[in-house]
Design a protein around this nucleic acid. Structure first.
Length: 414
RNA sequence: GUGGCUGUAGCUCAGUGGUAGAGCCCCGGUUUGUGGUACCGGUUGUCGCGGGUUCGAUCCCCGUCAGCCACCCCA
């Protein structure tokens, strides 16, 4: 181990069990997105570094896996998908009927110090609707995230949606006399409200001309703070999803490109970081691609959701079942007589052609040993091929019942 | 980037200033063509790496790398 190679910090090996777990998450992501009528797309893993600077400024470079390629281009491993999406949507926006409902599952890279729920490499599910500014779109995305969580096996006791609206804050700021050029600073204070000492927050608010009390009162009355929030909640209530949503104006999603409603999916009781998050970003497509197109979307990473699944009873059982199911074989052919190996191989081949997941011992081994292998590989059925061939024995491994049949009738007997 | 904790067989860990153990896993066996339990046996480690103190360090000290946790950040 000392002399061997290790993965780079923040990168993961996916052994078969891990890979099966990852694929399980991917399958859920894909299934729910398709159920909502989204189509899948993909973008390059490597992009010009400027694409990310355009959106987030130069500081972003510190958290990018970036380098100069052999053509002297400044390039970066993608840290997120939205800028690529904005470029794609803008470039061929005339080719698609609006709204676009696109999803993607891909790997992303961020040069950050890893900790629980965060690595330097991760997979992320991105789901966006472009070309439609109605709050119905925001609600649709939230509904999708709720259904996704339910598909994993979570209930209203396990997670909730925190909903907010940046416009509620910009309106509030304007009413309160905060200068336009101080808006970003103002939102930053709101973002840190829950994590920072009240005195510190109050001190930051003073030059902006807003009192902490006024902000607290505004948050306390969040339910009525925004017409958009009201519409989204009515929409979700009509789907029977009202209980999952909680208005929480303290959510403003960092300094991102969001322009309206924003939401996050949080676990209840585990205290993990946000499982998913998203919101409306009506000006980004124009910023990147020069085309006006309203948009909203959200993303879910694989790390937090997998942690949460593993720490939750029902979701973890579903995951475990899926892992076993994806790795188990259907039938194990037992070569009971080494002289019949050729015949056994024909049986194996026929079974595989018929679609059964089939395996067998590559070298001669005792029958008991072969049954053990069948057991360990999760086979439901063992077929014994021996001296009595062309008669074979079919054994149900769970019930231990067995019957014999002519090889010609094998497929019917199974 | 900052701070705290940790680093011993593939995994989970124990252990002592005098060059190391357990359980699990894995492999083999418990004789003749039938499996999940049981029993027996076996493989594996430069005790993360480098340096220092010491007659001698896996155990003490320093550094480093890595991991975990928190902060920053979180697109």
């Amino acid at each position: 181990m000392a002399k061997g190679f290790q993965t780079l910090p923040g990168f993961r090996d996916f052994y078969p069990d891990d890979c099966a777990a990852r694929n399980y998450v991917f399958e859920k992501w894909r299934a729910v997105a398709q159920r909502y009528g989204f189509v899948e797309y993909e973008a390059p893993v490597l992009e010009p570094t400027d694409l990310y600077k355009r959106k987030s400024g130069d500081e972003i470079v510190h958290q990018l896996f970036c380098f100069t390629d052999k053509g002297k281009r400044d390039v970066s491993m993608r840290p997120e998908l939205t800028p690529s999406l904005a470029r794609m949507a803008a470039a061929r926006q005339r080719d698609f009927k609006k709204p676009l409902k696109w999803f993607s599952i891909g790997q992303f890279f961020r040069y950050e110090k890893q900790q629980k729920g965060r690595g330097r490499e991760f997979y992320q599910f991105n789901c966006d609707i472009l070309g439609e500014s109605s709050p119905a779109v925001d609600a649709e995305l939230i509904a999708l995230s709720i259904d996704l969580m339910r598909d994993f096996g979570f209930t209203a006791d396990d997670f909730k949606i925190r909903l907010s609206d940046r416009n509620a804050w910009t309106d509030f700021a304007t009413r309160s006399g905060v200068p336009d050029d101080q808006l970003t600073a103002f939102l930053q204070v709101i973002d840190k409200l829950e994590r920072e000492a009240p005195e510190k927050t109050a001190a930051k608010l003073e030059p902006l001309g807003v009192s902490l009390e006024a902000i607290r009162e505004f948050i306390a009355n969040g339910d009525t703070a925004s017409e958009v929030i009201t519409q989204i909640r009515q929409d979700l209530a009509a789907r029977g999803m009202g209980d999952f949503v909680e208005v929480d104006l303290s959510i403003v999603r960092g300094l991102a490109y969001y322009t309206g409603a924003v939401f996050e999916v949080f676990d209840i009781g585990k205290g993990m970081r946000a499982v998913a998050g998203g919101g409306r970003y009506d000006s980004l497509v124009n910023l990147i691609g020069g085309v006006d197109m309203p948009a909203a979307g959200f993303a879910m990473g694989d790390m937090v959701i997998t942690d949460l699944i593993r720490e939750s009873e029902t979701p973890n059982e579903r995951l475990a079942n899926s892992i076993v199911g994806s790795q188990s074989i259907d039938i194990f052919v037992i070569v009971a007589d080494a002289e019949k190996r050729a015949e056994s191989l024909q049986v194996v081949q026929d079974l595989r052609t018929a679609g059964y997941r089939t395996s067998y011992a590559y070298t001669d081994a005792k029958v008991g040993k072969q049954f053990q292998s069948a057991e360990q590989l999760g086979a439901k059925i063992a077929i014994v091929v021996g001296t009595e061939f062309p008669t074979v024995t079919i054994k149900q491994l769970d019930s231990r019942e067995e019957k014999t049949c002519a090889i010609s009738e094998l497929m019917e007997e199974l």
